[in-house]
């Protein structure tokens, strides 16, 4: 036995694929959950709900992936990637569910890679380019505060057991995302003159897209309270909410979405019939 062999052996022993969470092992968090649509649930409505929430997560994860190798500190690389991976995991489950119940039998990949931009149902907030770190954490705060409030409701009371299970898993993740974003908004708001200015600009840029989130799910009291509390601690002003024309849930998007999708779908579309 070579002297290093014991190290190789100990490496081989550990088949701990769990840490890839929904990665190499495709360990299904829905294991044991009945996937038939329960009585009294409208499949089309359920599919639309899953598709909207799935697209939100997918596009948000795609933007977070753009931060890779560009984060302001190495520790933040790890943190942003964790959040991106959580959202990507949520997207996969929700898109899978949408394809199951909408009658088309489309897979998560069919939905992610073969639709055009007007078929995407994400809110426009998530498709906006990353901007600077202040804009990205402002967006993450608003997005995760809203999504957490929505998921808490779904986990507690939605009639579809699959969506309930996905939401229950997501609540833990989103609680962390909101915390991460809130801490950064406070740090940047309070930190230096430059960071204060940038953070205020970030909040101002995000504000016009908030009303669209409430149109998708009106949890404004809860989210408004969170945002007010964070802005106060950060010595920032929460801009008055104005509403933009159009609705991402209806397929209206900014010009930023098409290039994002082009990049995301390019390889998959270039090799039809490819195995990945």
């Amino acid at each position: 036995m070579r002297e290093d062999d014991h190290v190789y052996l100990s490496l081989a022993e550990e088949q701990d694929d769990a840490r890839w969470a929904f990665g190499t092992g495709f360990e299904d968090p829905l294991h044991g959950v009945d996937t038939s649509v329960p009585d009294g649930v409208d499949p089309a409505e359920l599919a639309a709900l899953c598709l909207g929430l799935g697209d939100d997560a997918l596009i948000a994860a795609q933007r977070l992936a753009e931060w890779v190798t560009r984060a302001p500190e190495l520790e933040e690389e790890v943190a942003l990637a964790n959040i991106g991976l959580d959202l990507l995991g949520q997207a996969r489950l929700l898109l899978t569910r949408a394809g199951q119940v909408d009658g088309t039998g489309r897979s998560e990949d069919d939905l992610a890679y073969l639709r055009e931009s007007d078929d995407f149902r994400n809110v426009r907030l998530v498709e906006l380019p990353n901007g600077d770190f202040a804009f990205s954490v402002a967006r993450l705060l608003v997005f995760s505060a809203h999504r957490l409030a929505v998921f808490e409701r779904l986990a507690a009371g939605h009639a579809d057991p699959v969506l309930r299970a996905v939401a229950a898993k997501g609540v833990k993740e989103l609680t962390y995302h909101r915390q991460y974003a809130a801490e950064w908004v406070v740090r940047l708001g309070d930190g230096t003159d430059e960071s204060h200015r940038r953070m205020q600009e970030g909040l101002d840029a995000v504000a016009p897209y908030i009303e669209e989130l409430y149109r998708a799910a009106d949890v404004r009291d809860e989210v408004g309270a969170v945002l007010a509390q964070v802005a106060d601690a950060a010595t920032l002003k929460l801009p008055a909410a104005e509403s933009l024309e159009g609705d991402g849930r209806a397929g209206d998007h900014t010009p930023c979405l098409a290039p994002l999708l082009f990049e995301m779908q390019e390889v998959a579309r270039a090799l039809p019939g490819g195995q990945w």
């Binding site: 969470a21 990665g23 991976l85 998959a268 990945w276």
Partner: peptide
């Protein structure tokens, strides 16, 4: 990562690059 041709590959690659950090 942004171009991975399946969502499963995207997740694996994202996690891998995170490991490198």
């Amino acid at each position: 990562i942004t171009r991975a041709p399946s969502l499963r590959r995207k997740a694996i690659l994202f996690a891998k690059v995170q490991d490198e950090a």
